[in-house]
Design a protein around this nucleic acid. Sequence first.
DNA 1: TCCTAAGTGGACGACCATCTTCCGGTTAGT
DNA 2: ACTAACCGGAAGATGGTCGTCCACTTAGGA
Lengths: 202, 202
Amino acid sequence: MRADARRNRDRIVEAARAVVAERGIDAPMELIARRAEVGVGTVYRRFPDRNALIAAMAGQYVHEIDDALTRAEAQEPGPWAAVRSFVMWSADQGRGALAAALADLPQELFDAMPEFSRVKSGMVGRLDALVAAAQERGDMRADVGVADVMRLLSLFTCHADLPQERAAHYLLVMLDGMEKRSDGAGKRSDGAGDRLDGAREI
Amino acid sequence: MRADARRNRDRIVEAARAVVAERGIDAPMELIARRAEVGVGTVYRRFPDRNALIAAMAGQYVHEIDDALTRAEAQEPGPWAAVRSFVMWSADQGRGALAAALADLPQELFDAMPEFSRVKSGMVGRLDALVAAAQERGDMRADVGVADVMRLLSLFTCHADLPQERAAHYLLVMLDGMEKRSDGAGKRSDGAGDRLDGAREI
DNA sequence: TCCTAAGTGGACGACCATCTTCCGGTTAGT
DNA sequence: ACTAACCGGAAGATGGTCGTCCACTTAGGA
């Protein structure tokens, strides 16, 4: 493969990520090509069809997330700190928007990417373990689960019209709300804060 | 207008609301017709084109919201209670999803509905006054504004995959977080809760 | 430098989803 | 019983996206 071709391939995957993040999973190929500063023909030379491109992009993305989780596990002092750090990393740079877009992949395409689902479910499992450990240690409220963490993550980051730093603030507030406090400040005036039940359902 | 025609007209508007809420502003006419249990022809007999239907639906919707706000103002004991009540009413029955869908109306259509924008901005103004009053009285944190209220509302209610009662819980937690507490419990461990700045920008 | 395999852009035909029209058959209400 | 109003849904018109094709360009070895 020629050097310029390699370069273009990378730019295309990069562009696909950006465009899918902001226009959803159905973003037209031409938009992706244009963002990569490349003709449509070039895209189709590298990827047999649209699905192949999406698959390549999703594969790269899920690995990136997986690595981030590994880093958080290794570098943070404890499970709760790791969860926090991972969540904030995910909220960065519109990664949440991409996740949300990928969430409505056609089932057919999803099935065609066994590795994607493998890495993804492994990652979710590890995050789940982290949450459980944090709760075990008493660092985190017991009535929220991975499902809540993931949901808030996608909620706060999948809207292009929500300024990024604002999303980060909301997330910090929510994370803060999930933290267990020993001073009793966690008691809410109308008990609403205690009704985050039904967690753990993935 | 014959009685059955009148009945069908209402069902069509109702169907449009439901379908737009769950499929977005670009939902196909046939889906709306089918939901109303009516042929496409019937829809076009009542509304000259797609835009006319959307406009009728949006007009009805904005008035409904306006009325709800009026009710909240009248029936609740104070401004903060009114805000809470209005927010929770809005979160009900997928109204947030509809609001989100209407948020990306084509500008052209938006301009063609002067009444819609009039009622809407009047409503936002009144809500703003309510928030200001609540803050004046010391019932609500001073560092959040209507913008935050509206954003959270749409955030939590515009996702079909977020179970409704879960969205309501999150909202309650957030509303609770906006409430001013005199016992000092509002002080958060890392100060994140104090960084909700930039409010009031509509 | 020259040569050529590899690469490139973008016009274009095929295809599909949706809008809107139209008309033969049905029905509410007098 | 009569008819003006109404109904459903087939079908033409339209617009947008996919993927192909080919004339032109370029990287990189001889």
